[in-house]
């Protein structure tokens, strides 16, 4: 399909994009793909035919295949028989793509959200140098390991409440 410049999203595309975006992350089911910021776009390319662009958090992220399968399933349920999910690398995903809601949900789930690295798009700029314990809010925390249960997280321990916790590492 050849288009001149960005095309406005149709109501159908919007509905389907929201459906695809509501798919939970397979590894962190508290957060949706839209909140994680990995859904790059969705286009209806023909009758019953949709193309979705997805970007991986990390190059080797094994969740990308589960994400693609889940998106296909959800769009099939919305009456789209032919779904193509393409993986795009550029521009690279950063943790700044995680929405404010997404950050709040990660914290409630017990994962310290990544600190924002780029300029804030709206609202006051939060200056937060230490990793804050998602359980008790203390900033007295220690890094235990740079890599945790997945490539995108690091393992920390809170020196106040003594609980270990994961931190979603900044990727800028």
């Amino acid at each position: 399909m050849v288009t001149a410049g960005p095309v406005e999203e149709t109501p159908l595309e919007r509905k389907l994009r929201e459906a695809a975006g509501s798919v939970p992350d397979p590894e962190l089911p508290v957060i949706s793909l839209a909140e994680l910021g990995v859904l790059r776009g969705l286009r209806v390319t023909g009758p019953g035919r949709v193309e979705v662009e997805l970007t991986p958090t990390y190059t080797g992220c094994p969740a990308i295949e589960a994400m693609s399968a889940d998106i296909e399933r959800v769009l099939h349920q919305h009456g789209i028989p032919e779904v193509t999910v393409r993986t795009v690398l550029s521009p690279p995903w950063t943790t700044d793509a995680i929405s404010a809601d997404g950050r709040r949900k990660l914290k409630e789930f017990g994962i310290a959200p990544p600190r924002t690295t780029g300029p804030a798009t709206n609202g006051p700029v939060a200056v937060d140098l230490a990793i804050r314990c998602p359980h008790c809010g203390s900033t007295r925390t220690t890094l235990l390991s740079r890599f945790s249960s997945t490539a995108c997280k690091a393992l920390h321990r809170c020196e106040s409440c003594l609980e270990p916790f994961d931190h979603f590492k900044e990727l800028s």
Binding site: P56, T59, G60, L89, S145, R146, A151
Partner: peptide
């Protein structure tokens, strides 16, 4: 255990690069 995870994660990053 932490290093087992760290080395496996680094390995996974490299495997992702290799696949692409």
């Amino acid at each position: 255990l932490e290093e087992e995870l760290a080395l496996a994660n680094i390995s996974l990053d490299l495997l992702g690069q290799a696949r692409i």
